[in-house]
């Protein structure tokens, strides 16, 4: 089993989650935990290499074949400016839909499914433009900080300016 599909059980959990709560898929990059809304996640699969794309920024790891369509893979660590991940078989690609496009995000591991209240989402502290650009907000879960990824910003600016 290379891919673990989460789509089936989405429905129930979302139903349980109710109006004011949010379900997140939490994943880690190094020590830090980040999350994306569970409804955007299409699939989680193990890293199995990607074909590099020339003339793109370092955080574009390349493209993979997802059942006949070509999906780009973004290295989240590199996107945050911490250098490229050296992926192993244990690294994970989270495939999500952003607008009408599907993209994969390379992360170290998927850790949990979290249910948080919308009221608990804090604003990202002003100061660093990278933080405010790439994160939508911050929530606390089990006294850990979870950054909510702004997918649109993460996947933008992929092209290398000539």
């Amino acid at each position: 089993m290379e891919a673990l599909s989460l789509r089936e059980d989405n429905g129930d959990k979302t139903a349980l989650a109710g109006q004011n709560t949010l379900q997140l898929i939490a994943f880690s990059i190094g020590e830090q935990t980040y999350g994306v809304e569970i409804t955007t996640v299409r699939e989680i699969r193990a890293w199995n290499g990607a074909t590099p794309l020339p003339n793109t920024r370092e955080f574009v790891r390349g493209v993979i074949n997802l059942r006949g369509t070509i999906v780009p893979i973004f290295d989240l660590r590199a996107r945050f400016g911490d250098g490229q991940t050296s992926p192993t078989k244990n690294h994970v690609v989270v495939v999500m839909s952003v607008g009408d496009k599907w993209v994969g995000i390379l992360v170290d591991a998927v850790s949990d499914i979290l249910t948080v209240s919308r009221d608990d989402i804090h604003n990202v502290p002003e100061g660093n433009a990278i933080d405010t650009e790439l994160l939508n907000g911050i929530v606390t879960h089990d006294s850990r900080m979870v950054g909510l990824i702004d997918l649109h910003s993460v996947v933008s600016g992929a092209k290398l300016d000539a």
């Binding site: 794309l53 020339p54 496009k101 992929a158």
Partner: peptide, 9 residues
Amino acid sequence: ENFEQVDGI
């Protein structure tokens, strides 16, 4: 379809 046009490709 899922990305954008890449120069030279």
